[in-house]
Simulated scan of single mutants.
Amino acid sequence: MIKKIRRLPKNISKLTSIQDYYHQQGTVPGTIIIDENAVQPNIILIDYNQAELIRVQINNPEDCTNYLDTESVSWVDVQGLGNRDILERLGQVFDLHCLVLEDMVNMAERPKIEDYGDQLLIIARMVIPKERSYGFHSEQVNLVLGKHYLLTVQEEPEYDCFDGVRTRIKKNKGIIRKQGSDYLAYSLLDAIIDGFFPVLELYGERIEELEEEVIVKPTPQTLQQIYKIRRELLQLRRAIWPQRNTINSLIRDSSEIISDDVRIYLRDCYDHTVQVMDMVETYRELASGLMDVYLSAVSNKMNEIMKLLTVVSSIFIPLTFVAGIYGMNFNTEKSPYNMPELNWYWGYPLCLGLMAVISAGLIIFFWQKGWLSNSFKIK
């Protein structure tokens, strides 16, 4: 019986409640759970050696059988997980364990490697930068490595970073067609790791823009952008960290499927993974620093505003005092304490002049102290 679950978001930044996508309690191990919205599989087979290259569209999984027993390298690329029957037939053709099929269709799997004797299951996560906005698409890639073949299973056909590898095979560039299936697996893993660099480059540019924005004109939207970048960088870290351990296992494990020559190339791939980790950690620290700078900038701006208001209030306090004194209107002829200024002909303009002199004096005093000039720089 086919069980259905909610569709796993393609964008890794949305994987906040990953436990919602695990199998239900009591599910039999090896059960294939198909998403009702999954794309129908598209199977492409590329069979090559140093002299020949064959690329065919596969409609029936059984058609792959004739290519798997040859000395040439057979790359079977499955794009889409929307047909349970085809996946089970592929499992029979490649003699896959039921748990391998389960891991392939479970898009919440953590990057890992499992040894099944004559086969290696490698689960990796690929990221592709968005074309018209910041952020990235994320997709799980499953690789089943055999002696003379490589089976790759992808969630979506539209996001892929393997075009460079396909071009090298087609045009016979480099040594890829002189090597075996293990070198092909290395090439795909290297393309996956290198796909992180364009994404991180975009985040580096965005962080530089936010640095200027935080200093010049911080807004609540700026804080939201910083939080978003921190959250997405955390998801990138969760994707690349276990991938580093996976490649390290390929280097150290004694599987006969991986040759010693390919292990040397995997070391370079491991170095790239470490470099990605360092960049992710650096950008996370920069994002955290931006948040501190934002809070300091907002606090400093508030202090400048309060300073300006205090200066303005200080100017009007003595004016209020003078106006208050002469606003009492105690003008009784019999009183010895009457205010003679109220009967002066020039009393009113003199009072206004006194208030103007006091204001000008305070403004000059504040200006000499440097308080007024800094306060009027607030935007």
Rank of each mutant, 00 (worst) to 15 (best):
58 I>W: 01
49 N>D: 15
54 I>S: 02
68 L>P: 04
77 D>N: 14
52 E>S: 13
59 N>S: 11
81 L>V: 08
64 C>P: 00
69 D>Y: 07
68 L>A: 13
58 I>D: 01
55 R>V: 13
74 S>V: 08
72 S>M: 10
62 E>C: 02
51 A>W: 10
80 G>D: 08
76 V>Y: 00
67 Y>S: 01
60 N>E: 14
75 W>V: 10
68 L>S: 14
80 G>R: 07
55 R>E: 14
64 C>N: 00
48 Y>N: 12
49 N>Q: 11
52 E>L: 14
66 N>W: 05
55 R>I: 09
69 D>I: 07
64 C>D: 00
57 Q>H: 12
79 Q>L: 03
72 S>G: 14
64 C>K: 00
54 I>E: 12
78 V>K: 07
78 V>M: 01
64 C>Y: 00
73 V>S: 03
72 S>D: 15
74 S>Y: 02
61 P>T: 10
70 T>A: 08
68 L>E: 06
73 V>W: 04
55 R>T: 04
79 Q>D: 15
63 D>R: 03
62 E>I: 06
49 N>W: 02
80 G>N: 05
77 D>Q: 09
58 I>P: 00
69 D>C: 10
50 Q>N: 08
53 L>P: 03
56 V>F: 00
69 D>A: 10
53 L>T: 15
51 A>G: 08
53 L>V: 12
67 Y>Q: 04
63 D>N: 13
53 L>E: 11
53 L>M: 11
56 V>K: 13
78 V>W: 04
58 I>H: 01
53 L>C: 15
62 E>Q: 12
57 Q>I: 12
73 V>D: 09
80 G>E: 08
50 Q>M: 07
69 D>W: 06
59 N>M: 06
75 W>D: 06
71 E>A: 12
78 V>P: 09
75 W>G: 01
59 N>Q: 07
77 D>W: 11
73 V>L: 10
64 C>V: 01
51 A>M: 08
56 V>C: 04
67 Y>W: 13
52 E>G: 12
56 V>R: 04
55 R>S: 07
51 A>S: 15
69 D>H: 13
53 L>H: 14
73 V>H: 05
62 E>N: 06
81 L>E: 04
51 A>Y: 11
49 N>M: 11
60 N>C: 12
59 N>H: 03
81 L>H: 05
64 C>A: 05
70 T>I: 08
75 W>E: 05
54 I>D: 10
59 N>A: 02
71 E>T: 09
74 S>W: 02
76 V>M: 06
79 Q>A: 11
66 N>E: 09
55 R>M: 06
68 L>M: 04
63 D>T: 03
79 Q>K: 07
80 G>V: 11
50 Q>R: 13
76 V>N: 04
55 R>C: 10
61 P>W: 04
80 G>I: 07
52 E>V: 15
